[in-house]
Computed example of a mutant assay.
Amino acid sequence: MDLQAQTTASNAPVSRDDVERELDWLISIEPEPEELDTMDDYERLMLPHQRRIEPAGTLLRQYGQQIRPATVEALRDEFYSITESDKYAFDPKAESVARSALSSAWAGLNGWQE
């Protein structure tokens, strides 16, 4: 069982390192725009990864659920702490994927709107 599956299964606290590891993986599988002509192309390229994408989103959501205080302001602070970090902010693709993945995973948490 990989780290992500262990964390999800055990409900152990999710660390920032866990989040970055999942975001890095999601970024690595994101197709380059020049590979895509249609949304069907995107879906076809992402299909082999589908079994792991959903658990990655679950882990990101668990991280959001841990943030204290449980407010949209605290979520926003953490969101920007991650997406505007040197790791993601200087690569448009990385920043876009990180923003999209976190926003989607946190939808509905403490008033977070996707």
Rank of each mutant, 00 (worst) to 15 (best):
V14K: 00
R52L: 09
R52P: 02
P31M: 00
Q66A: 14
D86H: 09
S104Y: 04
A105L: 06
Q65V: 00
L109Y: 05
E32S: 12
I29R: 04
G108K: 10
V14M: 03
A94C: 07
P48Q: 04
E114M: 13
E114S: 15
Q62H: 12
S100N: 13
R52E: 09
Q62M: 14
E73S: 14
G64C: 08
V19L: 00
D17I: 04
A101P: 10
S15A: 07
Y88S: 12
D40P: 01
T83S: 11
E35G: 05
R76P: 07
R76W: 11
D77G: 10
S81N: 11
W106I: 10
A105N: 07
L45K: 02
D91A: 12
L26S: 04
P92G: 08
V19H: 00
R52N: 13
V72C: 11
D24N: 14
A98D: 09
I27P: 05
S10F: 04
A56P: 12
R76T: 15
Q66G: 13
L36S: 01
P31Q: 04
A12R: 11
K87N: 08
Q66M: 12
D86N: 13
V97K: 03
L109N: 04
Y42M: 04
Q6F: 08
Q113C: 12
A56H: 03
P55K: 00
L60W: 01
D77V: 14
E35R: 05
A5Y: 06
D37V: 06
Q4W: 07
R68Q: 15
Y88M: 12
Q65G: 14
R21T: 12
Y42A: 01
E114C: 14
S96A: 13
A12K: 11
L3F: 00
E32D: 09
L23R: 05
R52D: 11
I27T: 05
A9H: 09
P31W: 00
E73F: 11
Q6P: 02
S81Y: 05
W106D: 01
A89H: 02
M46R: 01
G111D: 08
P69C: 09
G64I: 11
T7A: 10
